[in-house]
């Protein structure tokens, strides 16, 4: 009886270890995507709000494509496109992981851009005017007056995207990258059991509960005013 429990524990430990390694890759994708897409999203938001008709149309098209096509297709497109579009001699193969990060960053930047824009446009004109007559420069106004207010407003929407990102990391399996989902699928195939998939679900849940907690904390910190 004890031997059985010992075996089960050993198996469980091994499972957690395997899934843990996969989860680390998922986290790598998660953090790299956030690091690139959040600032890029701001640039895209400005492009979208630009009065220049050329910039505006290009950016609107970009946002349309990024939000309007499945991320999984975008990942494949970025990975395979160079091989197909460049002439035979110029074969440049992008590294799988790099292709994935590029696709994720572009895709999420479009979503963040629209969230930022919604937040920025919801700030009343009066705030800009009051800052202007007090002598603040446009840059000062944006970072000291507008951004703090925008952050508070867009926090719930941002948390949506971040939580979705944690789960979207599974899509890189399409390039054969071994992250949490793929590790679970492989283990499930090896032991002919669905337990690894279930445990993977728990891993995702755990990661997202940390994300949720962090956003709750930030929201609380910003609740000093209404």
């Amino acid at each position: 009886m004890l031997e059985n429990i010992d075996n089960i524990l050993q198996d469980l430990f091994r499972l957690f270890r395997l899934l843990g390694i996969g989860a680390l890759t998922s986290l790598k994708i998660f953090f790299l995507t956030l690091i690139f897409s959040m600032p890029l999203g701001l640039a895209v938001a400005f492009g979208r709000m630009s009065k220049n008709k050329l910039i505006n149309s290009i950016v609107r098209f970009f946002i349309l494509v990024m939000r309007g096509t499945p991320l999984i297709l975008q990942i494949m497109f970025i990975y395979y496109a160079p091989s197909f579009m460049l002439p035979e001699g110029m074969k440049i193969n992008i590294d799988r992981f790099v292709a994935a990060i590029i696709a994720f960053s572009l895709n999420y930047s479009a979503y963040f851009a629209e969230i930022y824009r919604g937040g920025i446009e919801s700030i009343s004109q009066g705030q800009y005017e009051a800052a202007a007559v007090l002598g603040f420069t446009k840059v000062q106004t944006f970072f000291k007056i507008i951004v703090p207010q925008v952050i508070k407003r867009i926090l719930p929407s941002i948390s949506n995207e971040v939580i979705t990102l944690v789960k979207d990391t599974a899509l890189v399996t399409t390039l054969g990258i071994s992250e949490l989902y793929r590790a679970a699928k492989n283990e499930a195939a090896r032991v002919f059991s669905t337990v690894p998939l279930f445990v993977a679900g728990l891993f995702y849940l755990f990661m997202n509960s940390i994300v949720t907690k962090i956003f709750d904390k930030i929201e609380k910190k910003l609740s000093y005013y209404r």
């Binding site: 705030q127 202007a132 007559v133 002598g135 207010q149």
Partner: peptide, 20 residues
Amino acid sequence: LRKIRLRLGMVFQSFNLFPH
């Protein structure tokens, strides 16, 4: 213009205080 701006002050109908 910036120098001139500093010589003028304005109070708005809707206050426009910075809520944060």
